[in-house]
């Protein structure tokens, strides 16, 4: 399977936007990711699926340097990103991440949540960043909630704010880790709509999800992994979801049927 990953179209400068090469990750001696390689080019939407505990979250966390790695390298625009490296904060600005649990800062209003990083990290002017924040809030339909606090919002609304908070940093790539998994069913749709909108407008995304219909609709490429390894990779999501080539892929998809 590793060979098929080499076959990605390259950007004008010859480098993929995100390049994960021979990533090796262990927790306390237990191997979680084995020789994992993946290239993502600009504008691609890649969906990662796989059974619980196979290492999907760990992969995203390594990509954002929230975890240290034991081997291989992760490059953003050709530059390595590593936990505890001096430039980790700078590198992370190129990556937006939204987690499964609503992770807004509870002591800050919605507007303050969104503006914290642009003002403190990017040292932007409040007026300019505030204007962009309002535009983004409008895009996710929550402009009227800007002065509320996270506790006043539903889970779905909080996740949309978390997306805005990531977007305002103008990241090169968005990492979404099961952002609807903790939501009540009726709120899943409003969040996925926002993500679909981002895909349409050309955002580069690496998405972990258990929503198979959503995965099928949004993916340019699907990666099915198990026990820290890629089992099947497909650039034709429709075909993959109709009939996976591997037995394990078929089994996994079958587990979503009733």
């Amino acid at each position: 399977m590793a060979e098929s990953q080499v076959n990605v179209s390259e950007r004008a400068d010859g480098k993929p936007l995100l390049s994960i090469r021979h990533l090796h990750k262990e927790f306390d001696g237990k191997v979680i990711l084995k020789d994992f390689s993946l290239d993502v080019k600009k504008g691609e939407v890649i969906v990662i699926i796989g059974p619980s505990g196979c290492g999907k979250s760990t992969l995203l966390r390594c990509t954002n340097a929230l975890e240290d790695i034991q081997g291989g390298e992760i490059l953003i625009e050709g530059q390595p990103i590593r936990k505890d490296a001096k430039n980790a904060s700078q590198m992370r600005q190129k990556i937006g991440m939204v987690f499964q649990s609503y992770d807004l800062f509870p002591h800050k209003s919605i507007m303050e949540n969104i503006l914290l990083a642009p003002l403190k990290v990017q040292k932007r002017k409040r007026e300019e960043a505030g204007k962009e924040a309002l535009e983004l809030l409008d895009r996710v339909g929550l402009a009227d909630r800007k002065d509320d606090y996270p506790r006043q919002l539903s889970g779905g609304q909080k996740q949309r704010i978390a997306i805005v908070r990531a977007l305002i940093m103008h990241p090169e790539i968005l990492l979404l880790d099961e952002i609807t998994a903790a939501l009540d069913p009726e709120m899943v749709h409003e969040v996925l709509e926002v993500v679909l909108g981002l895909a349409r407008s050309g955002s580069t995304m690496l998405i972990v999800t258990h929503e198979m219909a959503f995965a099928k609709a949004i993916a340019n490429r699907v990666i099915f992994m198990e026990k820290g390894e890629v089992v099947e990779e497909s650039s034709d999501p429709k075909a993959f979801f109709e009939r996976p080539e591997t037995e394990r892929g078929r089994e996994f998809l079958r587990s979503f049927e009733y």
């Binding site: 954002n64 929230l66 600005q93 937006g96 991440m97 992770d103 800062f105 914290l116 990531a166």
Partner: peptide
């Protein structure tokens, strides 16, 4: 983590 993910 979410603060650090934002580049803080």
């Amino acid at each position: 983590e979410s603060a650090e993910a934002l580049g803080l």
